[in-house]
């Protein structure tokens, strides 16, 4: 598959290609270019560091949507053992844009629920570009209730451009499905960790996004509406999404400052899309650590803290 390269990544890939060429030609000619490769590699590291330490909000949005970025199943494959996917909401159907299942994380039984995007057009037809219908949210709730009954923690993985805006979604009660999840998750009697790995768009994200800890990967976004949606409504021009992303403050760092996110998971230099294994390893370590802390609390204490955390969000005067 052809690599997709964002404009601000281009220099990095160009330099990498040059180093690659040098190495190949050296192998062919037998002429040593070690010194040169060494100096270019150093330059490359500096370039990556420089690019990724000064990312704008819009650039982070682009990274969060990067088509090569690891998706929910990429993490599950790397951090969960004995994974079994569970299907269906028992009422209407099986929404493939939200997946769920059981498995072990460092030997601990966990329920995993997450949005799933597709890697290509065919996959995206199946996954509906990670945009769930009501039955997706209802499947998620069914699985969460099962976890509650079996006293197993829940990990939700958030990566959606939004809940699907379509006729059938409305007919089957998109609003009700999301609303019901908000209410039920706020009092689910088992630990719930929410983790944003890409896009956190509005109610579609929040519908599986309430819990005890909100973790965000470094290059992700979360907001009340997509930057394009905001720009199209307020500025009558969806192409001004960049301005909207700045105005709404949508990055993981912003979420931390606004008191919405609890912790940022740093991505390896160059972004998660360039380092699947290393990113997954970090995710596993953080999840494991967080779960250990949460499972130590009594259910009453857990719910008290969750309730307080949710109640505290917002800025107003009186």
């Amino acid at each position: 598959m052809a690599k997709i390269i964002l404009d601000f990544e281009k220099k990095i890939y160009d330099l990498e290609a040059r180093i690659g060429e040098l190495k190949t030609s050296s192998e062919l000619s037998g002429y040593s270019v070690d010194a040169e490769v060494e100096s270019l590699s150093q330059k490359l590291n500096e370039l990556i560091r420089e690019t990724f330490s000064n990312l704008s909000r819009w650039q982070r949005v682009q990274l969060a949507r990067h088509p090569d970025r690891p998706y929910t199943l990429d993490y599950i494959q790397r951090i969960i053992t004995d994974w079994v996917e569970l299907h269906g909401d028992r009422q209407f159907g099986d929404d493939k844009s939200i997946i769920g299942g059981i498995g072990l994380l460092d030997g601990m039984g966990v329920m995993i629920i997450g949005h799933q995007k597709g890697r290509n057009v065919k996959e995206n037809m199946k996954r509906n570009y990670g945009m769930p219908h009501p039955e997706g949210y209802r499947k998620a709730l069914r699985l969460m209730k099962m976890a509650e009954k079996l006293k197993k923690p829940v990990i939700t993985i958030i990566d959606t451009p939004g809940a699907y805006p379509g006729i059938e979604a409305e007919e089957r009660g998109q609003s009700e499905a999301i609303a019901r999840n908000l209410l039920e998750m706020s009092r689910l009697r088992t630990p719930v960790i929410n983790m944003v790995i890409g896009e956190g768009a509005s109610g579609g994200a929040l519908g599986i996004g309430i819990g005890d800890r909100l973790l965000m990967l470094e290059n992700t976004w979360y907001s009340v509406i997509s930057p394009e949606g905001c720009a199209s409504i307020l500025l009558r021009d969806a192409s001004k999404a960049k301005e909207a992303a700045e105005a709404m403050r949508v990055t993981a760092q912003d979420m931390l400052e606004l008191g919405v996110a609890d912790r940022i998971i740093e991505e390896p230099l160059g972004g998660a899309h360039r380092h699947y294994d290393e990113t997954a390893l970090r995710v596993r370590q953080v999840l494991s650590e967080e779960l250990k802390q949460l499972t130590r609390l009594s259910t009453e204490e857990l719910l008290k803290r969750r309730y307080k955390k949710i109640a505290a969000i917002g800025v107003y005067s009186e």
Binding site: V224, V250, I310
Partner: peptide, 18 residues
């Protein structure tokens, strides 16, 4: 939800439902 307060508006959905 009110766009001008970004994610804070979104989180009011959680606050009220809870």
């Amino acid at each position: 939800a009110r766009m001008q307060e970004g994610v804070l508006s979104l989180m009011q959905m959680a606050k009220t439902s809870a």
